[in-house]
Amino acid sequence: MTSPESHVTVRDLRKQYGSFTALDGVSFDIERGETFALLGPNGAGKSTTIEILEGYRDRSAGEANVLGVDPQHGGLGWKARLGIVLQSSGESGNVTVKEQLSHFAGFYPNPRDVDEVIAAVGLTEKAKTRIKSLSGGQRRRVDVALGVIGRPELLFLDEPTTGFDPEARREFWELIRSLKREGTTILLTTHYLDEAAQLSDRAGVIAGGRLIDIGRIDEIGDADARTPVVRWRDQNGPHEERTTEPAGVVARLYAATGGAEPGNLEIIRPSLEDVYLGLVGAHDATATKKELA
């Protein structure tokens, strides 16, 4: 079932905590060299999924295969091929950026150059600063640097840019694109939908432990959700029309008003965020209906 080009294969993955079902039959593949984003609200099962694939948690049922290995039985050789950036942690950080990276580089058979990695995450100025003295965003960059120091074939990024300012996020995106160019496979979870749109080839949306949609970024959501919207205002108040031919609608409007400019005219192409919110909202509505029934 696993194609040789697949770096991650997940089939019908389930995770049960007592009577709580955290994951309820999730399936997807990530191809070699692909960047895949896992989206979903807090508590939807993103981190549970990623931690099962990293080998931190055992699954209750289903199949998982990461770089050809069952993550529940991944040895040191397998770990050497992974890069893991966990959600942020609170380590004491009594070492400098450079000491930490040089130390971790020693764990891997073929690490990247420490100074190059420090430069890539934009911390050259801070290389000799103790990690505990860094800002939250700078510490996060150290996390990312530790994740890539071992030259991983597959990189897990669990909400990597939390606490970054906009400029730092853009620099981070550049770093991820350069890793991508080198052929690194990446599994990313994020709350920033623009980040997923910028970086990933495909995305899956998880809600309530289920994968409710999966596809290329420009294919997520049903056709309706992606249909552009024309909005304007006249003496009767605001109007909105979903249409595949927005220019036609505008032309018609213009003709109908006899050349008067419609108020607050907008043509909106739904962003990934709009599509995502629509998907999750629809899922929540169905879940509530089921509970009531």
Partner: peptide, 8 residues
């Protein structure tokens, strides 16, 4: 947790 994700 971080060390456990490395080949140490």
């Amino acid at each position: 947790k971080r060390l456990g994700g490395t080949p140490l």
